[in-house]
């Protein structure tokens, strides 16, 4: 499987990364090189093999359903590029 420029632009868009035409052109061979190399995995017979889910057997723990923190609004917002009235601020989403 190899990618063309249209696919690269689609992946970039799904990744929310803006790319110029020139960048998309450059990415086509770069990504194909890497994808061509990982392709060799298809030659491994994996019938009856379960995909790995945890390297070290470990149970997902349950914790008590209690509040363990909170009242830290200013800390949560401290690193926001723009915060207004106690909220994260973003450009207008609905016209």
């Amino acid at each position: 499987m190899s990618v063309d420029k249209e696919t690269v632009k689609k992946i970039a868009s799904l990744s929310r990364i803006a790319v110029t035409e020139a960048e998309a052109d450059a990415l086509v061979p770069e990504l194909n090189n890497i994808l061509g190399w990982v392709e060799q995995l298809s030659e491994v017979d994996c019938s009856n093999v379960e995909p790995m889910t945890a390297v070290i057997p470990n149970k997902l723990r349950l914790r008590d359903d209690v509040v363990t923190d909170g009242n830290v609004r200013d800390k949560v917002l401290a690193n926001a590029p723009v915060a207004d009235h106690g909220f994260f601020a973003v450009p207008k989403v609905i016209e």
């Binding site: 990982v38 995995l41 491994v44 994996c46 093999v49 379960e50 995909p51 790995m52």
Partner: peptide
């Protein structure tokens, strides 16, 4: 497929 290979 990669996660299966990881199992192997």
């Amino acid at each position: 497929q990669a996660q299966k290979v990881r199992t192997l």
